[in-house]
Amino acid sequence: MVLEKMALVGDALSHVALPGLALGLLFNFNPFLGAFAFLFISSMIVWHLGRVTKLSFETIVGAIFTLALAIGIIIIPEAELLEALFGDITKVTLIDMVAAVLISAAAIGLTRLIYRKLVLSMISEDLAVSKGISIAKINLIYLLLVSLIVAMGIRIVGTLLVGFLVVTPAAAAKNVSANLFKYAFLSSLFGAISASTGIILSGYLNLPNTYTGPLVVFTGVTIFTATAFAKWKAR
C-alpha cells in the first residue's frame, strides 16, 4: 500500500469491515468471517468501479468507507462497539490463531506469485502491459490480499487502528531500505516488533484489553519516527 501510494486507502478500507464485524457479533459467528466478507465484496466493488469509471482507488474507497462506518455504528451493539473499534486480543481463540497462520502463509505464497508483475506495474503500467501483464487482474489479487490481512488484524487492534499494521511498519522500512529485499524483511520485522511489544507491555502493566491496540501503535510509530530521523541524518 505504501509503494502504491495508497497508504490512506489501507486505513480507509479497514473501516469497511465494521458492518461485517457487527453482524458477526450480533449473530454470534466468527467476526473475522463477517469482516472478510465485507472487505472482499467491497474490494470487488472498488476494483470494478475503478475499471469502469477510471476513478482512482482513493476516490472510490473514500466515497464508500464512511457509509460502511455509519452502517456499522448503527447495527453494532453499543457494548461491543469499543471492542470492534479497538480490538481485544483476549478474544483470539486457538482456531483464530491457526487460521491466521494459514492465511498468512497463503498470502505470502500468493504475493510471491504476483510479486514481479506487481512491482513492474508500480514502476510503469505501460511497461507491464507491454509485457502482457493484466493490470486489472493484478490489482484484484492485490486488493484481496489487503482484505485478508486487514480482516485478520482487526481482531487484535480493531478497525480504527488496523490501518496502522498495513501502513506504518512498511513506511518505516521504506525510510531505511535501498532495495526490495531489505524493504520486505524490515517491514515484517517492524510489524512483528510493534505487535509483540504492544501485547507484552499491555500484559506486563496489567492494562485493560483495549489498551493493547494503542500500545502496538505507539511502538510502531516510535520505530517510524526513529527511521525517519535516520533517513534525515543520512541526507
Binding site: 508500480m122 514502476i123 510503469s124 521504506k174 526490495l180 531489505k182 524493504y183
Partner: peptide
C-alpha cells in the same frame, strides 16, 4: 516510470 518512491 515511477521509481522515486520504490526502493528497488
Amino acid at each position: 516510470i515511477e521509481v522515486d518512491d520504490i526502493p528497488i
